[in-house]
C-alpha cells in the first residue's frame, strides 16, 4: 500500500465529519418531490402538446415514460421551447424507439385494453419513421405473469408492463411509451378537420359501430373508432386492422406537417384541448422532439406480419422472421430489412 493511497483514505475518512445528516436531507427531498409532482402535472399538458407535434413530425405518440437506455435522468426541462425551436445543427446519433399503444377504456369495462401496439423506430440517420405493428394477440412472456397475449399487459400492469414486455420480446431498449385512447384520436381528428386516407377494402359495421366504405375518403372524428377498432369482416381481420391504424397515423402525420400545425404553438394548444385527457405524455421530450425535428420526411413506413402464424392461444411473434425483424430494429437497419422482406411492408 503506497503512501498516497493511505493519505487518500485518510482524507476521505476525515471528510466524513461533514456528511450531512440523512433525516434533514430526506425531508428536503420529500418537499422537493411535492414540487416536482406539481410541475409534472403541468408538464403532462406540455407533453401532450408535444406529442401532437411528434405526430406531425411523423412520430405519433401519447403517454410516456422516459427511459434513457438505462440512465434515468435528463428530465424534460425545455419542453416548452423545444416544441418550436429549429432543429439543432448537431444530430443525435442514436436511433430512438417509442412504443405507441392505442388503448381504450371500453364502456362497462374497468380495465383498459390495448388494440394497437406499434413500435416506432427513428433511425439514427432520421431518414424516415418506421412503424412496426405487434399483433395484440401475440403470445409473449410477460415479466412476472407468464405467457399471455400482448394486449392484456395494459390491463395487468399499465403501459409500463406493456413496455417491459415489448422490451423483453424484442430486446429493444425503449426510450418512451405512449398511450392514446380513441376519444383523444377522435378529438384530434376533428380538430384537424378530418384526415384524408384510402382504404383498400370496406370495413363492415360491427358492435354498433358504423362501417366505412372502400376507397379514398375523409376520416372524421366519428369514423375513428370504426377505422381503428373494426376488424370483423376484413380479409385478414386484425392484420388489416393494424394496417389501417398505420395508414391512419401516416395520414395524420402528413396532414399536420402539411397544414403547419407542427410549427404553430397555437394550433398545438388547440389540438391538445381537443385530445383532452385521453392523451397522456410523460417522458424525455427534448430528446424526442429533437429527433422529430431531425426527421427528413413526414413519411411513416409501416411494417407488420402479412400472415399471422396462429396457435389456439394466440399469434406467434417470436418466429425466426420476427426475431430477425427485432434484430434489425436493434441494429438500426430497418430499411435493409424491409427491402429483404417486402411482404412485411404496408402500403
Amino acid at each position: 500500500m503506497s503512501n498516497i493511497e493511505e493519505e487518500l483514505r485518510a482524507a476521505f475518512e476525515r471528510q466524513e465529519a461533514v456528511v450531512p445528516e440523512a433525516g434533514s436531507v430526506r425531508s428536503r427531498i420529500d418537499l422537493a418531490w411535492v414540487g416536482v409532482k406539481r410541475r409534472r402535472a403541468k408538464r403532462r399538458a406540455f407533453g401532450a402538446a408535444a406529442a401532437v407535434v411528434l405526430v406531425a413530425a411523423a412520430v405519433p405518440v401519447v403517454t410516456t415514460f422516459a427511459w434513457h437506455g438505462g440512465q434515468p435522468g435528463q428530465e424534460d426541462t425545455v419542453v416548452a421551447n423545444s416544441a418550436t425551436s429549429a432543429p439543432p445543427l448537431v444530430t443525435d446519433a442514436a436511433p430512438i424507439d417509442v412504443l405507441l399503444i392505442g388503448g381504450d377504456h371500453r364502456a362497462g369495462a374497468k380495465t383498459p385494453r390495448a388494440d394497437t401496439i406499434v413500435l416506432l423506430h427513428l433511425p439514427a440517420d432520421r431518414s424516415a419513421g418506421w412503424m412496426v405493428s405487434l399483433p395484440r394477440s401475440g403470445l409473449v412472456d410477460v415479466p412476472g405473469k407468464g405467457r399471455q397475449k400482448l394486449a392484456t399487459t395494459l390491463a395487468l400492469g399499465g403501459e409500463q408492463l406493456t413496455a417491459r414486455t415489448v422490451e423483453a420480446l424484442t430486446g429493444v431498449d425503449l426510450d418512451a411509451a405512449v398511450v392514446v385512447d380513441y376519444a383523444a384520436w377522435r378529438g384530434i381528428t376533428r380538430a384537424v378537420g378530418g384526415i384524408d386516407m384510402c382504404l383498400d377494402q370496406a370495413i363492415p359495421p360491427q358492435d354498433g359501430r358504423a362501417g366505412l366504405a372502400e376507397g379514398c375518403q375523409r376520416i372524421d372524428g366519428d369514423d375513428v373508432s370504426p377505422l381503428l377498432q373494426g376488424q370483423a369482416g376484413l380479409k385478414q381481420a386484425s392484420i388489416d386492422r393494424d394496417r389501417n391504424a398505420q395508414r391512419f397515423l401516416a395520414a395524420l402525420a402528413k396532414k399536420l406537417a402539411a397544414d403547419g400545425t407542427a410549427t404553430s404553438p397555437v394550433r398545438i394548444n388547440q389540438l391538445l384541448a381537443a385530445a383532452g385527457g385521453g392523451l397522456v405524455y410523460d417522458g424525455n421530450m427534448p430528446m424526442l422532439l429533437r429527433a422529430a425535428a431531425q426527421l427528413k420526411t413526414s413519411e411513416l413506413i409501416g411494417l407488420g406480419e402479412p400472415v399471422f402464424t396462429s396457435t389456439a392461444d394466440g399469434e406467434i411473434v417470436d418466429s425466426a422472421q420476427w426475431k430477425s425483424l427485432y434484430q434489425a430494429i436493434r441494429d438500426d437497419r430497418l430499411a435493409k430489412w424491409a427491402a429483404a422482406n417486402p411482404s412485411f411492408v404496408n402500403d
Binding site: 436531507v25 418531490w33 427511459w67
Partner: peptide, 18 residues
C-alpha cells in the same frame, strides 16, 4: 453533496419502477 443527492433521489423517484 446535498444538492446532488436531492437531485438524484428526485430522479430515482420519477423512475422508481425502472
Amino acid at each position: 453533496a446535498e444538492d446532488l443527492v436531492q437531485e438524484t433521489m428526485l430522479r430515482v423517484q420519477l423512475h422508481w419502477w425502472r
